[in-house]
Amino acid sequence: MEKMNDKLQKTAKELLENKEVNLIIGFTKGSNPLRMRSVFITDPDDVSKLSFNAHCVQDLAVFLKKPEVKKFGKVGLIVKGCDEKAVNTLIQEYQLSRDNIKIIGVECRGVVKQNLADKGEDSVKQSTVYDKCLVCEVHTPLLYDYLVESDEPAFEINGDIKPYAKIEELDAMSVEDRNMFWQKEFEKCIKCYACRQACPLCYCTRCIVEKNTPQWIETNIEETGNAQWNMIRAYHLSGRCIGCGECERACPVNIPLMLVNEKMARDVFEKFGYKSGVDINAKPVFGTFDANDFNEFIK
């Protein structure tokens, strides 16, 4: 890890000193040693704060939508492969100019689930990492200006792994049972919108839930409105969600939002062969069409 941190710090220092960026967003050690938090560095002398390890869970791309960050102009972002896809999507959707970002990609071997880390878990293995790490195809980010290689070995995957196993279970259920499942989950929703705030791609300055002419989503806390919010959030992220899992991690009542996001991502890939956040020059799947698209459900 020390070698990684050295390279991170060196890269960040150079970028700041050469004025190639005005701000570096990265990770630093939190008060709890097994928790890493975000850090914003503008002074080259502060780069020693930067650090990376298997507890760097947060998708720092979320900060790119903030006006406080935008005002810095050129920004350097330390980012894992999964989260970097958010950067690509932001570029695709004109929220970010490629010229305004220096991507300091880190090779990631997987991050430890935070609830386990909080209990002292410090090892990266099949049973301790997030589901997304088990299916990760981007240990090395797809797009970067600088790459910081990992000096850790990849964890071993044994047996038949089934990340997001509940998706298949839900698919196999009757529609009534699925309804029961989600009704129970959405009942818990307190409409705090933490899922939205944590999402790097929920960048609208006025969210649809805040529009009241007409009122698209009932904002009082009752079942229909809760379900509607969660449904529309997932719908708006279909074909866009890059699977960082931040919404689920932010949810104070533990609604398994990734089960919806991942399902939709699989669905979009199956129907349209599209994976989000892969190519900054690709047309977003719902910004284009093909005359031979899936037509089976139409009479």
Partner: peptide, 29 residues
């Protein structure tokens, strides 16, 4: 209609996944 077809493809799957009987929505040309 092409753009709409794409959106409804995903939307129907989402609805059904969330427990709405997809028989309640019909799409036709």
């Amino acid at each position: 209609n092409y753009h709409s077809r794409r959106k409804y493809t995903a939307f129907r799957d989402l609805l059904s996944y969330l427990g709405v009987d997809i028989n309640r929505v019909e799409f036709s040309w």
